[in-house]
Amino acid sequence: DDWEIHFNNITIRLHGVSEEQIEELKELIKNGAHEEELRKWAEEVNR
């Protein structure tokens, strides 16, 4: 699925990401992940 997530003036566009991966991302954000951590997560997902 395609997703677009907005938070802290950042837009993250995701393509072909599962519901499970979105839940992981929500947890990262909820736990106060920094932009660098989110980038690493996105790189892993996009492999």
Rank of each mutant, 00 (worst) to 15 (best):
7 F>W: 10
5 I>A: 07
34 H>T: 15
47 R>H: 15
43 E>P: 00
40 K>F: 06
30 K>V: 07
6 H>L: 10
11 T>L: 12
42 A>W: 15
6 H>K: 13
10 I>W: 04
6 H>Y: 10
39 R>C: 10
38 L>G: 00
4 E>M: 09
19 E>N: 12
33 A>F: 04
27 E>F: 13
10 I>G: 09
47 R>C: 13
35 E>K: 05
39 R>Y: 08
43 E>D: 11
29 I>E: 00
44 E>R: 06
1 D>Q: 14
6 H>I: 12
44 E>W: 03
39 R>Q: 14
2 D>T: 15
47 R>S: 15
2 D>P: 09
5 I>C: 13
8 N>G: 14
31 N>W: 07
9 N>W: 07
30 K>P: 00
9 N>K: 07
5 I>V: 09
22 I>W: 07
33 A>Q: 01
9 N>E: 10
8 N>S: 10
9 N>A: 10
18 S>Q: 04
21 Q>T: 08
31 N>I: 06
44 E>N: 09
6 H>G: 04
25 L>V: 04
21 Q>V: 11
19 E>Y: 13
46 N>C: 15
45 V>I: 13
44 E>F: 03
31 N>E: 05
32 G>R: 02
14 L>V: 11
36 E>V: 06
45 V>L: 12
6 H>P: 05
8 N>M: 13
3 W>V: 10
15 H>Y: 14
21 Q>H: 09
10 I>Y: 04
4 E>W: 11
39 R>S: 05
40 K>V: 07
5 I>E: 03
40 K>P: 00
30 K>E: 07
33 A>C: 11
29 I>W: 03
40 K>R: 14
9 N>T: 09
43 E>T: 05
9 N>P: 02
9 N>V: 10
24 E>W: 06
25 L>C: 02
39 R>P: 00
20 E>K: 11
11 T>G: 08
9 N>D: 11
44 E>H: 10
22 I>P: 00
23 E>K: 12
30 K>F: 05
18 S>A: 06
13 R>L: 14
43 E>Y: 06
16 G>C: 15
27 E>H: 08
40 K>I: 08
14 L>G: 02
28 L>Y: 03
10 I>E: 07
27 E>R: 13
29 I>S: 01
34 H>D: 15
11 T>Q: 04
5 I>T: 04
32 G>Q: 05
45 V>Q: 11
18 S>I: 02
10 I>K: 05
5 I>Q: 05
44 E>A: 06
5 I>L: 10
42 A>F: 15
36 E>I: 07
19 E>A: 12
42 A>R: 02
15 H>S: 11
3 W>P: 03
4 E>V: 12
11 T>D: 06
41 W>Q: 00
22 I>D: 00
38 L>D: 00
23 E>V: 09
14 L>S: 02
42 A>P: 00
7 F>D: 01
22 I>F: 09
34 H>Y: 04
45 V>M: 06
38 L>E: 00
9 N>Q: 08
9 N>F: 08
34 H>Q: 14
18 S>W: 02
17 V>A: 13
12 I>F: 05
11 T>R: 02
24 E>V: 12
18 S>F: 04
43 E>F: 04
13 R>W: 13
19 E>Q: 13
10 I>M: 10
28 L>K: 04
5 I>K: 04
44 E>P: 00
33 A>V: 08
8 N>E: 11
